[in-house]
Design a protein around this nucleic acid. Structure first.
Lengths: 362, 362
DNA sequence: CGAGGTTGTGACAACGCTGTCAAGCATTGC
DNA sequence: GCAATGCTTGACAGCGTTGTCACAACCTCG
């Protein structure tokens, strides 16, 4: 009845008999057979290779869509050079940050027919490099997206380079190191935010530093220092306090900065979580925000919109950064350039900032 | 010099010549050759198949680890029945929720040698089913983890069933529908939380309902009603207000509930975001929390710890649920049972709850 | 009008692994 | 002692695709 010994069309969909039982879904062989061309020609059409006549292409395309053909991913990556797989490596500094990166990378993967594997790694683990290399050997991913703090791991980069594994670094700290990366100008953002506060009349502006090992910490602080100096304001010891990017460290910083008479009229925290810590201390001390104290953060985490008053902060184009990284990895590797993209930040002004209170000379 | 025509050992690592140039990494052929056994035996050892002598197993294992052999993922899934790939499908109701699920699924994948693909889908899209089916055909995943609201999509489940694609539902709404699922007893949680408030002396307890289409909404409310009824308290119209699980809808609900003289002394919001909305209204109205008003939420989002006072809420074992789902998918499919697991919730008492204020009879 | 491209197409051999089947060998039962 | 059984192993044929190469048909140009 049917042509091949093992083929039969049931209703709308092709069902083939294999040694492992019935399997739904057409293969490239079915399409080639139906369209009366070779498998290779079907492959050419699907991969947009040149040198296929328009008529053949249309025929193949029509046949493929009629059979609901979907190329098998494993076969493709086994036979070919590409795996259509990108991996996002992270070490969970912040779930929201990773989620944003992931979403951004996915938008790009979607349009390009790629898929995204997510892989958490412990950046402190001694066998980090071995584990990552094992993963790439196993999965043959077309590229890795390294997020902070993984983007600042020299040994890892070295291993990747020597194994010729493609990767893009998100917001690496080390300027000197070349290599493909996507970042934001954190220093400029720190400067602009500080200028905003100065513009509101603030003179005593506290700063809560971020985790010394994490991305952007130094740059954000350095931007703050620049702006202060430029405005002729002193960056005194009593205004700058260390933090660890955590809410709790923000609370401690807040206590240090605010529990005294000559407290600053504004506090710039190097991330939102710490800014919220400062705000909670202010609340406890009975300070009215933003009248008695302005607080600003950095990152625009979801939480920034969910407190009262809502937090003025810097929005990093996180998703865009990941999308750009994915695009770089998917793009033709023949372009030998290893670009270092710099995307624009955005200052989001909300309710936590107000003009400085009038000199209540203490 | 070397044995095979195309093999050579360079330093510590095997380098093979293929038609596409030099490729790092040993294959199963190399291991078999080195150990002087057949490929199939190596395969057997690596897949823990029975009927391999201890001596042979040890030899193969030693050889494999000496050569740093890592089985190729694509070849495995192409040749065999398993793909070592799980997919997490979501429609982003909340980034933190998805991140938790992802982390939980990953802990399980790690130990089992599986990898996780993340795939966002628009649950409202008319071709959702087609897209998901295409994805499974392409990737041949060993199983899907469906998260709300995707876990309540009858057409999708039907298509998956008929294509014999394995899946586990996370927190499905519909009780009636059988099928493998992992959930939490949301009704009991709603009841317990309400009882907690009643135990603190509250009598007028407001409730902010969740999005009518999303998971748990009805169950949480129903638990609240149960507890109220049980305590002989009336669930009056003026105490219950609709919400959409968003911060903004919480603000609106807060305005409705609190801007009047006979306001409740406690508010139970069906999720944390709305609880925070209510809190922000309370702040604006000059109510002191928790003295004048107790507020409780549901979900224990990161934000719950980051506001002042910190929010009393219900912790869902989100990560554990995803880990359990992954375990079900990875487990031997021969077990025909389609279990519906129910995990325990936890009530997290923080600063936003206090005994009811003394009758300020208005 | 013939040499030398260019374009369109197909045959065939990988890719690295697992499933099937059969064979070799040791062990057991009668 | 010999068939029946179980354990261990290997040969071989795929899995569904892409890369290489070959070849025919069609141009282009002197």
């Amino acid at each position: 009845m049917s042509e091949g010994p093992d083929d039969a069309v049931l209703g709308d969909s092709l069902v083939r008999r294999t040694r492992r039982g019935y399997v739904r879904g057409a293969t490239i062989v079915d399409v080639a057979h139906e369209a009366k061309v070779s498998i290779k020609t079907v492959s050419r059409v699907l991969n947009r290779e040149p040198n296929v006549s328009a008529a053949t292409r249309d025929l193949v395309l029509a046949t493929a869509s009629r059979l609901h053909y979907t190329p098998n991913f494993s076969a493709r990556s086994l036979a070919g050079a590409r795996s259509y797989l990108l991996a996002l490596l992270y070490d969970n500094p912040s779930a929201a940050y990773v989620a944003d990166l992931q979403a951004g990378a996915l938008t790009c993967c979607r349009t390009e027919g790629y898929h995204l594997i997510v892989e958490p790694f412990d950046s402190a683990s001694p066998d980090l490099v071995a584990r990552v290399m094992e993963m790439t050997a196993k999965l043959r991913t077309d590229g890795l997206i390294l997020t902070p703090p993984l983007s600042d791991h020299p040994a890892l980069r070295e291993a990747l380079d020597s194994a010729q594994v493609r990767y893009v670094l998100i917001s690496p700290n080390l300027h000197a190191s070349a290599g493909p990366s996507v970042r934001m100008d954190e220093e400029a953002a720190g400067r602009e935010m500080t200028k905003l506060l100065i513009g509101l009349g603030h003179r005593k502006i506290g700063f809560v530093k971020g985790h010394p090992d994490h991305g952007g910490s130094h740059l954000r602080f350095s931007g703050y220092c620049d702006a202060m100096r430029e405005a002729g304001l002193e960056v005194s010891e009593s205004l700058v306090v260390k933090g660890l990017y955590s809410f709790l460290s923000g609370v401690e910083a807040g206590i240090y900065l605010l529990e005294r008479a000559d407290r600053p009229t504004a506090v710039f925290a190097a991330n939102d979580d710490m800014a919220l810590g400062v705000m909670s201390v202010a609340n406890r001390l009975g300070l009215a925000l933003p009248r008695d104290l302005s607080v600003v953060g950095f990152d625009d985490t979801p939480t920034a919109r969910v407190v009262w008053p809502q937090l003025t902060t810097v929005r990093q184009p996180v998703a865009e950064m990941a999308a750009a990284a994915a695009r770089l990895l998917i793009a033709d590797p023949s372009t030998e350039t290893a670009p270092a993209l710099v995307l624009n930040f955005e200052i989001v002004i909300r309710g936590s900032t107000a003009p400085a209170p009038k000199m209540n000379a203490s």
